[in-house]
């Protein structure tokens, strides 16, 4: 670029011809090098822009393709191969036999039919959905009043209260799960307290139960429920409630008919943020649940690390993706589009 403009931000250009040219050409940054090609010097400038632009597109795009998309294709590929003893413990997809010079494609379906034939996998899958659903409802019941209370609090108090909700999230996940082991185990704090008050004289078996798993999931995922709920409730128009009150509507009815329906998007967002990761959860059922707390994440882990059956582990992953993650992402997509229209 020529002239005084090279010195950039400090140049005294207010009211100058370029600034007067105005924001119509601002689209240059955003929509590509086609617009606003009238001015001299701009051409060169746009070429550079296109180069930088390509780099900014290519680097993160390439990274995600290589390290996120390609791995899933490999998972699919290995789910369709058979396991063998060796390193790596699965058969190659393409095999060239020396005597015939032909390439054989090895694809097998039996890892998937195996998942269907053994009840373990279906039970684990349904059980994961069930545990995650109950934990999500519990998060909603506990989180809704909290989010509502923060949204209704004095504005000065909102940020500190939110910080209090988020703060445990910054400490380690494992430490938060571990905290409950110390509370729930037979010699733990809760049993000692109950025995000291005389309510029980034998320690209750609390740890390594499904109940402990629920507590663990609710405890760890509660902030994910509260934050979207708070965001929705805080934006809500208070005049609606005032109008309802003026017209003689009791507060509980106003809540049911106004607040609750208006907060549905927040409830949905929060529920998804809890439900999906909870379904695939491994650490919480492993540390707090008993051996019978069967969840699909644990099954995948065991297939991979204990049985070293990589193809079956991959098939479990593919099934989980198809029946959990893909439907939910499609649902979110459709919902997003609907909101966009509205």
């Amino acid at each position: 670029m020529a002239g005084p403009f090279t010195s950039g931000a400090g140049a005294p250009v207010a009211g100058g011809p370029v600034a007067g040219g105005g924001h119509s050409s601002a689209g240059v940054v955003l929509t590509g090098p086609v617009q606003g090609g009238g001015r001299s010097g701009l051409g060169r400038f746009l070429t550079r822009l296109a180069g930088g632009r390509r780099l900014v597109v290519a680097v993160p795009y390439g990274w995600l393709l290589l390290f996120f998309l390609v791995p899933f294709l490999i998972v699919l590929k290995i789910a369709l191969s058979s396991s063998q003893v060796g390193i790596p413990p699965f058969t190659p997809m393409f095999e060239t036999s020396l005597d015939e010079g032909k390439t054989i494609v090895n694809l097998v379906w039996y890892n998937f039919t195996y998942l269907l034939s053994d009840n373990l996998y279906i039970i684990a899958y349904l059980n994961s959905l069930w545990i995650a659903a109950i934990a999500t409802v519990l998060c909603l019941l506990l989180g809704y009043p909290m989010a509502y209370a923060i949204a209704k609090a004095d504005p000065r108090w909102r940020a500190p209260l939110l910080m209090l909700v988020i703060l445990p999230f910054w400490t380690s996940f494992l430490i938060r799960v571990y905290a409950w082991i110390g509370i729930l185990r037979n010699e733990g704090v809760l049993n000692n307290l109950l025995m000291w008050t005389g309510l029980i004289d034998q320690p209750l078996h609390l740890l390594y139960t499904p109940g402990a798993t629920y507590v663990g999931i609710v405890y760890n995922y509660l902030p994910f429920m509260i934050l979207p709920l708070y965001a929705t409730l805080e934006k809500m128009d208070n005049t609606l409630l005032e109008a309802a009150a003026d017209l003689g509507c009791p507060p509980w009815k106003a809540f049911l008919r106004i607040t609750l329906p208006l907060s549905v998007p927040g409830m949905l967002a929060g529920s998804l943020l809890v439900f999906i990761p909870a379904t695939g959860e491994f650490v919480i059922p492993e540390l707090l649940g008993g051996p019978d707390t069967l969840m699909i994440g644990r099954v995948l882990w065991a297939e991979f690390f204990n049985n070293r059956d990589w193809p079956v582990a991959s098939a479990v992953a593919v099934a989980l993706l198809l029946f959990l993650v893909v439907p939910i992402m499609l649902f979110q997509n459709v919902q997003g589009k609907q909101q966009g229209k509205a």
Partner: peptide, 8 residues
């Protein structure tokens, strides 16, 4: 800034 000629 773009209008004033700063590079991207």
């Amino acid at each position: 800034a773009m209008d004033l000629g700063a590079r991207p």
